[in-house]
Design a protein around this nucleic acid. Structure first.
Ligand SMILES: NC(=O)c1ccc[n+]([C@@H]2O[C@H](COP(=O)([O-])OP(=O)(O)OC[C@H]3O[C@@H](n4cnc5c(N)ncnc54)[C@H](O)[C@@H]3O)[C@@H](O)[C@H]2O)c1
Ligand SMILES: NC(=O)c1ccc[n+]([C@@H]2O[C@H](COP(=O)([O-])OP(=O)(O)OC[C@H]3O[C@@H](n4cnc5c(N)ncnc54)[C@H](O)[C@@H]3O)[C@@H](O)[C@H]2O)c1
Lengths: 221, 221
DNA sequence: CTATTATCGTTATAATTTTCACGTTATATT
DNA sequence: AATATAACGTGAAAATTATAACGATAATAG
């Protein structure tokens, strides 16, 4: 009789450690590329430069079990991760700011793999209104209300300059947005029931700069 | 006699906990926007929804001290963070892949604030060669060697599709690149002396999807 | 000048996360 | 069918990280 262990999952929502969630996303990325049928914790660990025990512990949080002697059935594990992240459910999102980055996102074909559909892109520059970003016409902010209701949009993407970010967020929240995907390099203040995910692209390179300065190889510069 | 405590820093390179480094980046983002002269750990903590003790502990890693009764002198603290991250030293970087994202990055004016200069952008599509991305002409891969040497490039930015990412990285490493800033949604395998920072933009939205499903407000969808 | 107070820096304590160690189980072998 | 083995799952130990507590200190008020 397999899987008789009572999973923590059953008793209310588990809190995933933030680091575990990040690693689960890495497993998701890795496994999606894998061609074979099974993979061991050891192989996953090797490819990600972590310990196999860590991999097993992380996966034990999921509603999924591997097979002794064989490893993890990749497509089932991906299913479990898809379940965790809701990638099979589609969320409609909007983008505010039809500049270089906003347009790149609007053109991105890969979002479908993550259960994301960009339903509209907005800008406040009259010159930009009516132009195209991918398949989408750039809309004025006055259309926000209509679009958010019509497509039941929960996630708003901030692609405006840093100095406009906070007021844009305030507006989105007033219009009913529940989660902010923030690409502006600033810290946003939001009510505590609103989620924020910061994608501070440029600042992320500082990790590399920091480490390059401290790594034997990179020391000379 | 102030600052008589022997900082850990003095005895060899400190290891910053990953979470601490991430928070230090957030302080950097927050403080750069701050207009006043001083700020307290309490105010920083409030704006980032963390505890003030955490802020003080993080800052204690730096070669910087605040003032009792007053708080942290913002511009000095920013200087200490700039020092930590090397934002005042310029690194020349290259971009591989002159598609939507690569061009957006090539056009980004904000990199100067992070000590980054994009010196070249490459593509393997003959149609793209010679076209412009910002100020830069799109170059063929055969120019890699020359550019990397001429500008002493340590960091390579991956903006090619996932399926080309690994071979592009292999090539860059062969040409002497020491750090990879990876925007492709795949896990890269590199020798252990090579640094990798993954900017898996699309996958980052999964955190929001995951939490929206588990947050009272976002439950109904 | 002294007392008071706000806020830092740091040591001690608590909580969390990772690693270890080993029992369990599915498959393969003799 | 019994045995060997590879890999998982998990409870316990270790390590790391976060929180709390508190003494030290600079500014301010009296
Ligand atoms: N381009 C990149 O590669 C890159 C890299 C790192 C960070 N970012 C950040 O992403 C954001 C967007 O960058 P970008 O390069 O696309 O900038 P951009 O200047 O090309 O585009 C910004 C767009 O926002 C619009 N806008 C400004 N204020 C607005 C408002 N209040 N409401 C609606 N629209 C408004 C502008 O009209 C413009 O079209 C910025 O915060 C930037 O710092 C971009
Ligand atoms: N555009 C986005 O907003 C976005 C969002 C998330 C992730 N990404 C990721 O970023 C990467 C780039 O995305 P994009 O939208 O710019 O794609 P894109 O298709 O617009 O551009 C890719 C470019 O890479 C070039 N290329 C392909 N193989 C190459 C090779 N071997 N050597 C050199 N150049 C090569 C192509 O000619 C093309 O110009 C992809 O991995 C994508 O998954 C992009």
């Amino acid at each position: 009789m397999k899987n008789m262990s009572v999973k923590k999952k059953r008793n209310g929502p588990i809190m995933f450690p933030k680091a575990t969630l990040e690693r689960l996303k890495m497993y998701h990325a890795l496994l999606q590329e894998e061609k074979s049928e099974y993979i061991s914790s050891e192989e996953i660990a090797r490819k990600l430069s972590i310990k196999p025990e860590q991999v097993r512990k992380d996966i034990s949080y999921l509603d999924y079990s591997g097979k002794p002697k064989v490893g993890y059935h990749i497509s089932s594990l991906v299913d479990a991760l898809d379940e965790l992240f809701g990638t099979k459910l589609r969320d409609n999102i909007i983008i505010i700011g039809a500049g270089h980055l906003g347009k790149a996102l609007a053109n991105y074909k890969g979002f479908v793999n993550f259960g994301i559909r960009v339903v509209a892109i907005f800008d406040n520059d009259p010159e930009k209104l009516g132009t195209y970003a991918g398949e989408l016409v750039v809309l004025p902010l006055k259309d926000l209300d209509r679009v958010i209701r019509r497509f039941n949009v929960k996630i708003g993407t901030i692609c405006v300059p840093g100095e406009s970010a906070q007021k844009t967020v305030d507006l989105l929240i007033k219009k009913g947005i529940k989660a902010i995907w923030n690409f502006a390099p600033v810290i946003l203040e939001v009510p505590e029931n609103i989620l924020v995910e910061n994608m501070d692209i440029a600042r992320s390179v500082l990790t590399l700069k920091h480490l390059l300065d401290r790594t034997p190889t990179g020391k000379i510069r």
